[in-house]
């Protein structure tokens, strides 16, 4: 009987699951041109020398013989060239906070995305092929992100009037995201989001400061997560006019003319 009473709860759980759309967040895909230069010098030198001497002497005569031979061989090869190729892959960082913010601020359920582990090629950007291959079989939507720009900066600026300077180590990450329906391939939201973090320290003359990379990476991840969740909620219409979050499923503003309020003009 106890097990039967539990069966009552099951449909309720199923309803609860059916309401919230499931979303999978991919790792951030990147492509980067890698250029290099190589210069190889191969030098072999083999040399040998041989000398022999023989002396013979008896009561009547004496003879002496001396011979000498030498050989030297040198091989020299020099090759120089530059190469360039495009590297494709996925950054296994920065998506943790995106997932966290989506859980906190929107009504989605999260499912784990399967990472792309094949050898990197341009196919990595073919998200439709990945969806069809069943990478995100449990998800209704995939949030597909690609890295647009990743820039580290290390700046040292003197503080005027003092003998100290400010050392700022910062990282900025810009990524583009598309929220794709896994059945219809409809793009429900698309935006580019920014994550930035910095570690600023005062350095006096002669001192050496080491910036905390961990702190910077963590700040970038957090701010990227917040930006992604905010823009996704905006585009999915999860906000009301007063800026409060609306209930999921609230009617969207009528399409057509822009929803325009009265103009406020400020007097000089």
């Amino acid at each position: 009987m106890k097990s039967l009473s539990f069966l009552w709860v099951l449909p309720l759980l199923m309803i609860g699951n059916a309401e919230a759309a499931k979303i999978a967040v991919t790792d951030l895909t990147y492509s980067e041109r890698v250029s290099g230069y190589f210069h190889v010098v191969d030098y072999h030198n083999k040399s040998s020398a041989r000398a022999s001497q023989s002396d013979r002497e008896n009561n009547y005569s004496s003879s002496s013989r001396y011979s000498e031979s030498g050989r030297s061989q040198t091989d020299y090869t020099e090759v120089e060239s530059s190469y360039s190729y495009i590297e494709y892959g996925e950054l296994r960082k920065f998506v943790g906070d995106i997932k966290g913010e989506i859980l906190k601020t929107s009504g989605f359920q999260l499912t784990q995305a399967k990472p792309y582990t094949s050898k990197g090629s341009e196919k990595i950007f073919d998200i439709i092929a990945r969806i069809k291959k069943g990478y995100y079989s449990n998800a209704d939507y995939v949030l597909f992100g690609t890295v647009t720009e990743l820039e580290f900066r290390d700046e040292l600026n003197p503080i005027i009037g003092t003998n100290t300077s400010s050392n700022t180590f910062s990282l900025m990450l810009v990524a583009e995201f598309s929220l794709i329906n896994t059945r219809t391939f409809e793009v429900k939201a698309a935006f580019s989001a920014t994550g930035e973090g910095e570690d600023a320290r005062m350095a006096s003359a002669g001192s050496r400061v080491v910036p905390s990379r961990g702190k910077v990476i963590s700040a970038v991840s957090k701010s990227l997560g917040e930006d992604v969740a905010r823009q996704m909620n905006e585009q999915l219409g999860n906000y009301t006019d007063s800026g409060e979050r609306a209930e999921r499923g609230a009617p969207a503003p009528p399409a057509g003319l822009p929803n325009e309020g009265p103009v406020t003009r400020f007097t000089p």
Partner: peptide
């Protein structure tokens, strides 16, 4: 206009001559 303006030092030659705001699409 001045109530919406923050100047870092009074500008000698530049003026904010008009300022208006409207709410469009939230």
């Amino acid at each position: 206009i001045n109530s919406k303006l923050e100047q870092l030092g009074e500008m000698s030659y530049l003026q904010v001559s008009d300022l208006k705001a409207v709410k469009r699409n939230h």
